[in-house]
Simulated assay, not measured.
Amino acid sequence: MINLSQTKVFGGWHKQYQHTSTVLNCDMRFAIFLPETAGPTSPVPVLYWLSGLTCTDENFMQKAAAFKKAAELGIAIVAPDTSPRGEGVPDDPDGKYDFGLGAGFYLNATQEPWKKHYQMYSYVVNELPELIETYFPVTPDKAISGHSMGGHGALTIGINNPEDYVSISAFSPICHPSIVPWGEKAFRHYLGEDKTTWQPYDAVSLINQHPVTTPILVDQGDADGFLHEQLKPETLLAAAKANNVPLTLRMQPGYDHSYFFIQTFIEEHLEFHAEHLRRDAW
């Protein structure tokens, strides 16, 4: 593991690393914020943040304005890249932004030529936390959040692994990817034509099939240009109501899909996760 950079911020540290991933068969980059209170005798819990299409580990760390509140709450934040990268990693043959590099969709691909590298689900759930918990002063207590494609990832990973994540939140998530253009394109290429293999990566399908007790907070702007075609929060809300899932979905008037939206409400999301991380530690 190579430390690429480190910068002091709000008493803590933002650090960026590169490491070789055996799951993804390539070198990967991630960023971590460690509050000042984090140390060998005082490890802190972790919020994993999953970013959206075209993003890297840098977008959230540079644009979300999360460090001050995370420092106050004593929470580390880990932001992985959004897909495998590097020589030999296949990309969308048409060069589109919504598939391939920058668009791993937080799943384990089963189809050629994608399956050798596109195993982002296993990377986020297993390999990356093992690395973080080995080399940094953190506890095993985790929460997960994300934006857009990363909101989809946070929902599905959190729902599929209730023993690992005490709380889930999302901004503008792709709620029902099996029925929208972004999800259909990615799932068809990564997973094949059998739509039953798509269901473990679709939050609405998961809620309809399995009991979900993990608390979930979702913020969605009503001026989001992707709202009706790609995101469909109403499908998530309907599934949650039908299955008694502890979901809070807040439609925020006038907000779009940008990091200005995330900046506005990120402190409330951090407080939401801190509350559940504290409860889990009792």
Rank of each mutant, 00 (worst) to 15 (best):
G153I: 04
I2V: 10
N59D: 15
V138W: 12
N161K: 08
P253N: 09
I207K: 09
G74D: 09
W282P: 04
F33E: 03
L247Y: 13
S122P: 10
A71Q: 15
W114K: 00
A66G: 12
Q18F: 06
F136N: 03
V218C: 07
R29T: 11
A103L: 04
E271H: 11
N25G: 08
K115L: 01
E163N: 15
P84Q: 03
F99H: 06
A240G: 09
M28S: 07
R278I: 03
I77V: 15
Y190Q: 10
G146H: 05
A103S: 15
A203Y: 11
H210L: 12
S178M: 07
Y255E: 14
G95K: 08
V180L: 01
G192N: 00
L237W: 02
E87G: 11
T54D: 05
Y106D: 01
L247P: 10
T214R: 13
I144T: 11
F171T: 00
V138L: 11
I168F: 08
P35Q: 00
K185H: 07
R29G: 01
Y165Q: 10
E112D: 12
A240R: 14
S258E: 00
G11F: 07
T56H: 08
G39R: 10
K15R: 15
L34K: 02
L128G: 07
A170N: 02
N108E: 01
Q6H: 14
W182T: 03
V78M: 04
Q220S: 10
E234R: 00
G221D: 05
F272W: 04
K185Q: 04
N108K: 02
V124A: 09
A109P: 05
V245Y: 13
E275S: 11
S21P: 07
Y165K: 12
S83R: 06
M1K: 06
F260I: 09
E267W: 15
E267V: 11
Q209R: 13
D280R: 15
V138N: 14
L247T: 05
K115G: 00
S42W: 05
V78I: 10
H269W: 06
F33C: 02
P35Y: 05
F272M: 01
D94Q: 14
V9K: 09
I168H: 09
T20D: 06
G158T: 06
P129Y: 13
D81E: 15
S51Q: 14
L277M: 14
A71D: 13
D202I: 09
